[in-house]
Amino acid sequence: MLSDASAAVVRATLPAVGAALDEISSRLYSRLFADHPELSRDLFNRANQTSGVQRQALAGAIAAFAGALLDHPDRRPDALLSRIAHKHASLGISPGQYRLVHTHLLGAVAEVLGDAVTEEVAAAWNEVYWLMANGLVAIERRLYAERGVLMGDTWRPWTVTGRVQETPDVTTFALAPADTAPAPAFRAGQYVSVRVELPDGARQTRQYSLSRATTGCPRRYITVKRVDGEVSAHLHDRIHPGATVEVSAPYGDVVIQDTGVPLLLASAGIGCTPMVAMLEELGANGHTGPVTVVHADRSPTTHALRADHLALAGKLPAAQTRFWYEHGPAEAPGEALGRADLTDIPLAPGLTAYLCGPLPFMRAVRDQLLARGVPADRVHYEVFGPDLWLARG
């Protein structure tokens, strides 16, 4: 854990360093990509780099990690690291890349903070970095081993065996291994990384939840919404049955851990994909406990997997659905016009909630749950792309 001397320095400098972290992370990526342009082309999400989302997420993660070390000096914040490690493992990150980032991080800190970075300050924050990096490497090593892949080598070729147009801007792709190895097992709620070669030669990667539980089935399904991005457009426009894409082993730590408690599965938009898989998994396992299914969308016609959402919930003996749409019609039982509102939904004692959707939706639902007495550690969430929850407090 953080040494006493370093803890005192980090505590004293955290406000100043925290305020500069966004600029530091921006300089870090500029230096890194100037030295290794292949990382921008073939590893990092170019759209997130352009928008600044990636640097915001990095800055938030470092600040949160440092704060956790100060608040709980007796333990490493593995819960915080786990989400990052799963994402890194899905991208094939290897230990050597942490040393590369460290080199450019030190240079970026010196550029931004200048003479304020004394040897004492540099040593303290260097300790923070390596505690975080080594913690991530340890978790990632375990994740790779559990999936039977070499560290940093998570990719396999998969063949597209079918595609279904769910809504005008959402398509489900069926995938099967292109080699002779069996499809790896996974838990509902997990995701895979999909890597494609774009027309300019770049190999870009995005994460997609596995949208069906497919127990015992060699195929895997991802349901992709066309957004203002390179990879989703490439998949929609160019990937058809017979095409081959690179797919990672499954990762993600937002899975149902305890089926003996009441459950709330809340989603918005394309965030329904892991929730539909969770419902299928619950049904396959004969779940009989209470499950509340909440979803918000623009309209019934834009609600991807709507029929599956309803049918799978309907197979559970103690499940109820509550859907909200911005535009009608919303005439079926359990449907309403407007934004998701949990005010009148009964929340049983001991409830555990799982959330997936745009960050404002998840924040709103989480706030409602906390206000009604659901403990924070019983509210789990999944995000697509860099995790900005920490970056925004």
Rank of each mutant, 00 (worst) to 15 (best):
E280K: 10
F361G: 00
R99M: 12
A311M: 08
P95Y: 03
R203V: 01
A110V: 14
T244V: 15
K87Y: 06
P177D: 04
P386F: 01
A181V: 10
E111N: 06
W158L: 11
G152P: 08
L143R: 00
A266V: 05
G314H: 07
V101G: 02
D169A: 14
G92F: 05
S82H: 11
V196D: 11
S232E: 05
M278D: 08
W158P: 05
D253Q: 12
E331Q: 10
L113I: 05
D341I: 00
V109P: 13
T215K: 14
L390N: 11
P95K: 03
E382G: 08
F33T: 01
A268Q: 06
E281T: 02
R212C: 12
A57L: 05
D71E: 15
Y208T: 09
L263G: 10
R11Q: 13
Q165V: 08
T161P: 08
S267W: 05
N134E: 10
D74I: 02
R306D: 02
G373W: 09
L263R: 04
G242W: 09
A133M: 11
A330G: 08
C356I: 08
V149M: 06
S211C: 12
E326A: 13
T103L: 13
A243E: 09
E335K: 01
R339A: 11
L91Y: 15
P184L: 04
L39F: 10
S90T: 10
A332R: 15
T273C: 09
S3V: 03
L43I: 11
Q49I: 07
M151P: 08
P241N: 10
R147F: 12
D115I: 12
L32W: 00
T352L: 08
T214A: 15
D308E: 15
L100Q: 14
A8N: 09
A176Y: 04
A188K: 03
P241F: 07
S30Y: 14
Y129I: 04
A336F: 00
A202V: 05
E335W: 03
W125A: 03
A318L: 07
P199T: 09
Q207R: 04
T301E: 15
A243M: 03
L105S: 02
E246C: 13
V247S: 09
I222G: 05
R226F: 03
G201F: 01
P250W: 09
P333Q: 13
H303T: 02
G260K: 11
S90Q: 10
T273S: 02
V245I: 08
L21T: 10
V194R: 11
V10Y: 11
R366L: 02
I139K: 09
H327N: 15
T301L: 12
P375T: 06
T244Y: 08
K225Q: 14
S267P: 08
W155D: 05
G92A: 07
F65Y: 13
A181D: 14
H303L: 04
G314E: 02
V149Q: 13
S90V: 06
A304G: 07
K225L: 03
A138L: 12
V365C: 06
